[in-house]
Design a protein around this nucleic acid. Structure first.
Lengths: 185, 185
DNA sequence: GAATAATCGGGACGACTGTCCCGGATACGA
DNA sequence: TCGTATCCGGGACAGTCGTCCCGATTATTC
């Protein structure tokens, strides 16, 4: 329980990070059905290495998702400090939908396994939901977003949105964002 | 090639229809990962029965999807004759998103297997895409939908949309529909 | 530089799923 | 009512995937 029970060996850290990146890419491109053996092969490590860092496949899902949420949290913080509320909100929201498109399925698979991703993210200090909620409130106060829009609406729009990766995915986001703006313009 | 090579036996027809309904429910509730054995058990038939009517699991996917498309086509035709273009368009679009939420994954799984669902639907005379395209054109002519919206946009919005089944999914659809209407109101 | 403990690689095992097959049962036509 | 072709049930088989384990290797510490 002493916080430094022992630092991870350097090569182990490298391997873990590399596997995580490889898994993220594989899941994004081919979905969750990619075998663990295949991820290990692509990462250039043995299956045992993957198994040790991530005891089950679900643990691998969770780690990938937490990693992305950490990155998104940083992006959200940057936006909040560098832009006005409306701009920041729409930028984050757009990014979340794009991420949701890529990593759809992932959160879903975890939800079905009794893993609370929100709680895990909060514990890690990278809760994206809280940041989006705050930006929504601020953007509405600034008149950039329709006051009738609720946080639940946003969750619904981002949570499982947009598998279609056609020629022009940005058009879709544009349509949705237009629906969020105040009616008067 | 004589068109009545032999009608299917009555019990076989019943079984086929029952398996199809059971499979549709199972896929909708639990996703595509439901084993064929499980579907057979729930339908109260043996695995051989499922296997004969639908030689592979993909054939089962395709049959379920074609069945839904047939129903949706009928709905589209009803709407087109009983309502004005704008109303009919939004009603069909809403329904398509709801269906897309339920049977997401399905079309996707088929697309990855070289099965052309659009062509199959056209052959069966139940091409929903064509009906949606026509309604879009008419609704735009009637001033109910923004002229800048393209059919590709609609496909993107419906194709893989909305896995989230929270407390109020209709709000999501409302937001999207508002984004489709003309800017002037 | 050597001892030690952590980590690695990849094969093995068990569980699961899709597909096929065969003896028994049943609906259809005469 | 009876014969026959069709269909049904469920067990068997093969392939795949997730997980675990062991001997070899390598980073870390003294």
């Amino acid at each position: 329980m002493t916080r430094s029970q022992r630092p991870m060996r350097a090569d182990a850290q490298r391997n873990r990070a590399h596997v995580l990146r490889t898994a993220a890419d594989a899941f994004a491109v081919e979905g969750l059905s990619v075998p663990v053996h295949e991820i290990a092969k692509r990462a250039g490590v043995g299956t045992g290495t993957v198994s040790r860092h991530f005891p089950t496949k679900e643990a691998l899902y969770a780690a990938v998702l937490l990693d992305r949420m950490g990155e998104l949290s940083g992006y959200a913080d940057t936006l909040a400090t560098e832009h006005d509320p409306g701009t920041a909100f729409f930028a984050l929201f757009t990014r979340l939908i794009q991420e949701g498109a890529t990593h759809r399925g992932l959160a879903e698979a975890l939800a079905g396994s009794g893993f609370d991703i929100e709680a895990a993210a909060s514990a890690a200090g990278c809760n994206v939901s809280d940041r989006l909620r705050r930006l929504l409130t601020e953007a509405q106060a600034a008149g950039a977003v329709d006051p009738a829009v609720t946080f639940a609406d946003l969750k619904a729009l981002t949570a499982g949105c947009l598998a279609y990766d056609g020629p022009d995915p940005d058009r879709v986001i544009e349509v949705i964002c237009r629906g969020l703006r105040p009616v008067s313009g």
